[in-house]
Every structure is written in structure tokens, then in C-alpha cells.
Nucleic acid binder design. Structure first.
Length: 385
DNA sequence: CTGTCATTAGTCAGACAG
DNA sequence: ATTACTGTCTGACTAATG
């Protein structure tokens, strides 16, 4: 077994926004954001040009999904509320998300990479890990060849990091974005990785980052310099050990080329917060339609589920979930609706509701075998004696 | 008969990510 | 005054089982 692995992380540059620029090339060089509702579809005008919505015209709920680098320069980033971003960049162009197109380009770029290096792990729509260990080509030329293949297949640029493991490659691909190609070895960890903020590590989010900062730990280097026993004491055995290892650039996770889904869900945020009593019909209609959509998704993908769950986000942004596990797997929307109805009875309904969601877990693929949580033991044919 | 321990399933919340 | 949607994982707790 080869001890030095070569793992690439490839990240498409401003993916959704870049796909939109393929369709609307006249927007190149402008601040463009993707997000919001589909009412902001561009309108073809009499003279053949298109009219685009501006951020300042936006009213209502929604967040930015992606922004071009020109928009980021104005302080507008993904996840930001649209109303807030409208204040920062009122003249930015607003486009609705077009997931069909993104899925299409996603397939194109992944196929292009797989044609060169077949060991590819899917990480959502715009990212992959690639295990290059079996390829003998020199690293930089191989990575450049992959970038070129992605551009030829899609017209889109990407950034690649190549290092001995997933942890470092994920960080590396971000270092020279956009259109980057960064190659690191373990020897580069002290100079290139340690100066970075701890939250650059995949898995250290806002909460963990803040807790670390409270102990005076801001960078990955400061994390590496922290005694392992201290991290274990503060974060628990599992997380403490993990933090210590990743701070030293150690990560043995394999590139996983196939996986089965564990759950399938649908959720929706309402235009305005709904109250169970005043808005009963509307709420009930949304509830049913979510259940039917989950049932649809299940059947289309060839699964049934044993666990049904609901999720409610209240007006104050607090969230509750409830779920129920059935003795037999189901996939029919109406049956899902019944089980979800049981969950709904167990939830407080005084406050107004902002979001409603339905989830199907404990998936059983219709060929018959259970996916999640091991397997069901030999079933009990007996009753209580 | 009772208490305890280990293990597993189920439930719920929370963190994180793309 | 704002903060999407889909999905995974983990920790804490309870109940059941042996």
C-alpha cells in the first residue's frame, strides 16, 4: 500500500452565478447575485435585449445563493439576506436560481473529471474529491489537465487543491480561488496552513470557532500548539482528538465513490408567518403538498421509508422536530401525510409558523434492503406470552 | 425478586456544509 | 430588519431488552 496519497479537491468557481453568465454573457463583469423567487426572471424586450431585475427592487424573504466576484467585492456573500444585500449593492443584478441548469453542468464537469481520474467522491453539486494516487502523471500537469477538461466540457473555471489528504486539499483549493491550482505537501502545513483561521477547517463552524476563540485559539497553528489533553477536556474525547489531528494536517478519510441516501426531505418558508388557527386551510394545504412531494421523491428514487419526521421553524426562528417510526416501510404521499399528522399533534402551536418541513428517514430501497441503521433483526413472530 | 449493566432503537436538538 | 433548502453526523436522553 502506498503511504503517500494524492488527493484532489475541485471546487467550481461561483458555480451558480457562473452558469448564469453562460446564459447571459452580457452580464459578465457586473455584480450579479443568484437567489430569491422566480418572479425575477429576465424579460426579453422589444429591441431584443433583456431586462434584468435589480437587487433594490426586491421585497420579501430570501437569501443570496451565490454571487459573482464583482458582487462579493461589494460585501455581498452567499447566505446573506436579500433585503440586507440590497442595501449594500442596490444596483446588483438579481437572478432566480435555475437548479436544472446547475445539475446539468454539474454532470458535465463530473463526467469530464471521471474520464481522466475515475475515483471521484461527490460533495454536492459543485465540488468533488478525486483520488489521484493511482495515476503516475506529474501532479501539476495532471491537475491542469483536469482543469482544462472541466473548462472544455462546460466553459466554466474551477479551483483545485492537491495534497496528501481531503482535509488539506479542501483548504488548498480555496487558497488561490478563483481559477486556482494549489499543490501542498505535509511540509507546507506550518507555513501555509497554520496561519489560517481555525474556521477554515471543514467541520469547524461558527460555534466551535467561537468556543476556540474564547480559549484564545484563533488559527490552526494555535490549535496545533494547544495540548491534546486541553482540547479533550474542553470539547470531549472524540472532538478533542480530531481537532488535534487535523491541526497537524493528519486525515485518513478515504475518497468514497458511492453512497446511498439516508433521508429525503422537503421544506418551505412561507411568504408570511402562518398561524394554525387563522391560516388553517393554507397551512393544511402546504403540509399535504410537502408530504406528497416527499412521497413522489421516494418513489422516483426507488425508496420507501420507515421514519417520518416534521420540522417547524417558528416566527422567532426556534426550531422543533418530531418523528415517528413505523413497523413497515411506506412511500405513498397520503400515508406519509397520516404519520406526519401524528407528529404535528405533538408540537406546540401557539406561535406563528415560518417554515414547515417533512422528512423521510430509515430508507429501504425498493429492492428490499434497509439502508440506514444497520438492519432489522430477524423479525419477531411472537406476541407477548 | 430486585438491582445493575450493556446494548440497541428511537427520538430530539444542534452543528455543519454546499 | 434579515437570515433557503437539502442532507449528514453526533451527542444526549429515554425506553426496552437480555
Amino acid at each position: 500500500m502506498n503511504s503517500i496519497r494524492r488527493i484532489a479537491h475541485l471546487d467550481m468557481d461561483a458555480f451558480f452565478a457562473s452558469v448564469e453568465l453562460l446564459r447571459y454573457p452580457e452580464l459578465r463583469g457586473q455584480a450579479v447575485v443568484v437567489g430569491g423567487r422566480s418572479v425575477h426572471q429576465p424579460v426579453l424586450q422589444a429591441d431584443g435585449s433583456r431586462h434584468f431585475s435589480r437587487l433594490r427592487e426586491y421585497t420579501g424573504r430570501g437569501v443570496i445563493t451565490t454571487s459573482t466576484y464583482e458582487a462579493r467585492a461589494l460585501g455581498v456573500f452567499s447566505g446573506m439576506g436579500l433585503m440586507k444585500s440590497a442595501k449594500l449593492a442596490p444596483e446588483a443584478i438579481l437572478l432566480p436560481a435555475n437548479f436544472e441548469a446547475y445539475r446539468h453542468y454539474s454532470q458535465l464537469f463530473k463526467a469530464a473529471v471521471r474520464a481522466i481520474a475515475p475515483k471521484v467522491e461527490d460533495r454536492g453539486i459543485d465540488e468533488i474529491y478525486v483520488d489521484l494516487s493511482d495515476n503516475s502523471e506529474e501532479t501539476r500537469s495532471l491537475a491542469q489537465r483536469i482543469k482544462d477538461a472541466v473548462f472544455t466540457a462546460t466553459g466554466l473555471s474551477c479551483s483545485i487543491g492537491v495534497t496528501p489528504n481531503k482535509l488539506l486539499s479542501k483548504i488548498a483549493s480555496d487558497l488561490e480561488k478563483p481559477n486556482g491550482l494549489t499543490i501542498l505537501s505535509l511540509d507546507d502545513v506550518p507555513t501555509r496552513i497554520w496561519p489560517l483561521a481555525a474556521k477554515k477547517v471543514n467541520g469547524i463552524g461558527p460555534k466551535a470557532s467561537e468556543r476556540l476563540e474564547r480559549h484564545g485559539i484563533r488559527t490552526i497553528g494555535e490549535l496545533a500548539a494547544t495540548p491534546q489533553e486541553f482540547l479533550i477536556r474542553k470539547f470531549g474525547r472524540s472532538t478533542g482528538l480530531w481537532m488535534h489531528r487535523i491541526a497537524h494536517g493528519i486525515d485518513d478519510r478515504p475518497v468514497v465513490t458511492e453512497s446511498e441516501p439516508k433521508s429525503i426531505s422537503r421544506e418551505t418558508t412561507f411568504e408570511r408567518d402562518l398561524h394554525v388557527r387563522q391560516d388553517k386551510p393554507e397551512l393544511s394545504e402546504k403540509f399535504t403538498s410537502l408530504c406528497l412531494r416527499v412521497g413522489d421523491d421516494l418513489k422516483r428514487k426507488g425508496y420507501a421509508c420507515r421514519t417520518i419526521g416534521i420540522k417547524i421553524r417558528y416566527a422567532d426562528f426556534s426550531v422543533v422536530t418530531r418523528d415517528v417510526t413505523l413497523p413497515v416501510a411506506i412511500s405513498d404521499g397520503a400515508e406519509i401525510r397520516k404519520s406526519a399528522g401524528l407528529c404535528l399533534k405533538r408540537v406546540p402551536l401557539e406561535q406563528r409558523i415560518r417554515l414547515l418541513g417533512i422528512r423521510a428517514g430509515g430508507l429501504v430501497d425498493l429492492a428490499g434492503e434497509q439502508i440506514a441503521s444497520k438492519a432489522v433483526q430477524a423479525e419477531l413472530p411472537w406476541q407477548e406470552p
